[in-house]
Design a protein around this nucleic acid. Structure first.
Lengths: 369, 369
DNA sequence: AATCGAATCTATAACGATTTAGAAATATAT
DNA sequence: ATATATTTCTAAATCGTTATAGATTCGATT
């Protein structure tokens, strides 16, 4: 009787998915040395002088058996892992998620995979993960929104870190321009009494952004009252921090017609606090965010915000790191160490012309007409 | 003269960070065979009979030079990569980001790293990434919210996929319970004219969730009018889909007092459409979301929604996969193939008692008192 | 004194590729 | 006819571990 399926008995098992073959077996099959096969498959320049028919023979066989060189064996020899480490404070947050998305697009497209590790701003974890990535032999590292001072034996790009470290490419927003855009917008709407919420001290953007704001305000002749400046402290990505900061302004009775929050999350908390206090946004108080994370536009009242091109920044970081990996040291010097991205003001629905009387509180219960 | 720094000429360069040493060098240093050192460092059971002093000698040397076995060499031998592949539709979306976060917590804690790849529901990418992960020799795979039919030669766990595949652990929400919670809530508030927005056909949860809703409605004696059921089609995570679907209900003049959206993003779009149409949420229409993504609570009016324990689900997926990696096949049978998670109704501010006259539209411009 | 069994450690063969220097055969130049 | 290139391919040495099957030594047992 004809056997459709071969039995277990016949030498090589074929039930177990033919147990993927290796270079050696492939070489045996075509009757050539493993070296030759490797050379041809890798398109090495040494293989330039190999007879075209031979090449085709090898390639055909490789295709036939769907041969794939063992990844680790190759890494071991070539010292290349085609893997990039990515360090973020947190994955489940709009800012980082957008950046990650940009990073991923480029990396996968170029045949790289990446590891993610989130450190929640814990310095010990930052250090630990840096080591871990190094031990895992990543070809490069991208560090997002993280205090970073180290130089490593492979290309590193930072996004929104501001320390200048030898050999690391810094990708940052033009904060001067951002501050200018924001304040200009607010002032044009007639706001003078502007409250500010600064980011946490351990967030790298905090200082730079604040300095830019102070500078821009000075240039525009806007006075910043220290009483209208708050700083969030807690280590959390929750809007509750912005909520509390705003509440404090409110209970202190500090009058303001506009509020510029450190980021969108913070702005969302602020808006909620304002609402609860009986103030309407933007009729009574204008609120301006920063980042333009995805959910900023999803708000019932779209958040007006200073947009960072987060995906672009991620993509560029990936590009720079990859380029330096393939070009080696030479590229390190050619490339400028810092790359500036331009912010964009996205005007939605939380900013409007200033009221005449700053901070005048609307009655909690409106008289029913 | 005394040389503080050795020059390049002296054999091994020491400027270049001592160029990390290998097992061999370490073995030479302690005057033992590489095998011995390896055994001791790995705490192999073969090393049980090795003299304690010897062990300590080796360990001390390893510590002194901060020896770390080359990762690839080890992978090559042991066939273990301590790496898990994670497949998601998209990273920059609340649902996936939360799940990822849960996955990461557990994985890193257990000494694993993970690759992420997002397929945007493109079947070719799903297949391609599956191969890619396999080629990269991941020890396991976690698949999130993805149509999945394959069985692979390593442990796989799916989250919110509903196909039963041999050898894959399915982690899913108890949709029957979810539907019951949601409809109960709405009905208790007096809603009978409820509109529904179904998810895209290619999203695995869509069908299961809808069937659960139909079943629960039948049990509760609630009639679902086909005219009040919409389905989003487009492949995008934007709230605009929910916006459009709601708009269509509105222009068709279909009366409803409540709307149950496929997910939170969709609900946000719906709310915006309602507002633009002059209907207040929740006074005129109640809106109920699904998932409880982070930004659901950040809305100016917190979104009432059916919560999925996303982080937990991610964590459990990671646990199951790791356990099956270390326990091997035996575990595959002991574990039940499906793990059910309980939803929770999170009541915030977008649901309220039904109005007497469903769908009565508020004048676009209110008479100023 | 010969044998046995622990106790300690090691030699060596994988793991699966890449890469360098060069072998063998053939063609070309002198 | 010999020397020199050229073409085509290969042997063998890594890469840095781990794992298996012993080799040695030494005191205890018969």
């Amino acid at each position: 009787m004809a056997k459709g399926k071969r039995t277990k008995a016949d030498g090589q098992p074929n039930r177990k998915a033919e147990r993927r073959l290796g270079l050696k077996e492939l070489a045996d099959y075509v009757g050539l040395a493993p070296a030759t096969v490797s050379l041809v498959i890798n398109g090495s320049s040494v293989a330039d002088t190999i007879a075209p028919e031979t090449k085709e023979l090898i390639l055909a066989a490789a295709r036939k058996f769907d041969y794939r060189p063992n990844f680790f064996a190759r890494c071991l020899r070539t010292r290349r892992s085609f893997t990039i480490g990515v360090m973020v404070p947190e994955v489940s947050e709009g800012y980082n998620a957008s950046v990650l998305s940009g990073i991923e697009d480029h990396l996968l497209q170029e045949g790289y995979l990446y590891f993610v590790a989130s450190h929640r701003f814990r310095p010990d974890l930052i250090e630990e993960y840096a080591q871990l990535f190094q031990h895992r032999s990543v070809d490069g590292l991208i560090v997002v929104c993280t205090p970073w001072h180290r130089s490593l034996p492979f290309p590193v790009a930072t996004i929104s870190s501001h320390h200048s470290v030898k050999g690391v490419t810094r990708i940052v927003l033009d904060h001067d321009r951002a501050a200018q855009l924001a304040l200009e917008h607010l002032m044009q709407l007639g706001h003078r009494a502007i409250a500010f919420i600064k980011g946490q001290a351990f967030v790298p953007d905090t200082e730079v952004r604040w300095n830019a704001i102070v500078k821009a305000a000075a240039q525009m002749g806007l006075a910043i009252s220290p009483k209208r400046v708050a700083q969030i402290e807690e280590n959390s990505p929750s809007p509750h921090l912005g909520y509390k900061a705003t509440q404090e302004f409110l209970v202190r009775g500090e009058p303001f017609t506009a509020l510029f929050a450190f980021n969108d999350i913070c702005a969302m908390g602020a808006i909620r606090a304002l609402h609860e206090y009986g103030m309407r946004v933007p009729e009574d108080v204008s609120v301006l965010g920063f980042d333009d994370i995805e959910s900023a536009g999803y708000q019932t009242h779209g958040l007006t915000t200073v947009q960072q091109p987060l995906r672009e920044m991620g993509k560029t970081a990936a590009q720079k790191v990859l380029r330096r990996i393939v070009n080696g040291k030479e590229d390190a010097d050619r490339d400028s160490a810092q790359i500036l991205f331009e912010p964009k003001l996205v005007i939605r629905e939380t900013t409007a012309a200033a009221r005449r009387q700053p901070g005048k509180r609307k009655p909690l219960v409106e008289a029913d007409p």
